Amino acid sequence: MNMKLTEKQISILHNCLLDLRDSSSLKNPSFLPVALDRLVNSEGFGIEMSGIYLSIDDDFENVPDYLKDGMAFEFMDDHVVLSFSDGTSFITNWCKKNVTQDYEKILLKCSSLEKRFQEKE
């Protein structure tokens, strides 16, 4: 990762991913795998307090106004925009440190995500 992030930015990124990991529904014990699958398909994904959005999403309504290029991570009313490579790198490193449930499946999804966005830059 070539990025220099402030503590506040790291906190936003961490809390976004943490919220996706820990939030669930009747059909999904965690929204993190769902989010990763959507990102691999070039679609953003969000829940009540958190989301990850892509500038290349075909659904323009799913792209925040401030996002011109790359990935946006939102938590509450704050956001951080990263390049595709920095964003996927951050997600992968975060998952390696913070995921315990379905670890291998999640890392496989991270690998697919990294391969998908290596083509973008």
Rank of each mutant, 00 (worst) to 15 (best):
F60L: 13
D86M: 00
M71L: 06
S24M: 12
L36K: 00
D65A: 10
T100D: 15
N41C: 02
I106G: 01
D59R: 09
V63H: 09
N93Q: 12
Y66P: 04
V80T: 10
D86R: 00
C95T: 09
D78R: 04
S89K: 08
F73P: 00
R38T: 04
L39N: 07
Y53E: 08
S89T: 13
D69T: 04
N41Q: 12
W94F: 09
P33W: 03
F90S: 00
D77G: 08
E61I: 08
D86S: 05
K27Q: 13
D86N: 07
G44C: 08
G51Y: 10
Y66H: 12
Y66F: 14
N28V: 06
V63I: 15
F90A: 00
E43V: 04
S25C: 03
W94R: 01
L26Q: 10
P64E: 04
W94G: 01
N98L: 09
F31L: 09
L39A: 03
K105S: 06
L108M: 08
I47T: 07
D59K: 09
I47N: 02
T92L: 13
L82G: 02
D69Q: 03
D65S: 14
K27D: 14
E43M: 09
D77Y: 15
M49H: 14
G70D: 10
A72F: 11
F90L: 04
E48P: 04
E48N: 10
L26Y: 12
G70E: 07
H79C: 10
T100V: 11
I56L: 13
I91W: 01
D77A: 08
S89E: 13
F90M: 01
Y53Q: 06
N28D: 14
L32F: 09
P33M: 08
G51C: 05
D37H: 10
L36H: 01
N41M: 10
G46M: 07
K97Q: 12
F84C: 02
F84G: 06
A72I: 05
G70P: 02
H79S: 14
V80D: 03
D65M: 12
E43D: 09
F73W: 13
V34A: 02
G46S: 09
N41G: 03
S85C: 06
T88G: 01
D77W: 14
Y66A: 06
D37V: 10
L108T: 15
A35D: 04
V81W: 01
L107M: 15
S55L: 09
D22P: 00
K27G: 12
Y66G: 02
L67N: 03
I52G: 04
E61Y: 12
D58A: 12
T100I: 11
A35Q: 02
I106M: 02
K27Y: 14
S30F: 15
S42L: 11
G70M: 10
V99A: 01
E48V: 07
N98E: 11
Y66M: 09
G70N: 07
D69V: 03
L108C: 03
L39Y: 11
L26F: 07
S42F: 15
V80Y: 12
V81Q: 10
P33K: 02
M71I: 13
S83Q: 04
D77L: 11
L36I: 00
V40W: 03
S89A: 13
S50K: 02
D58P: 15
S42A: 12
L82N: 07
D69A: 05
M71D: 03
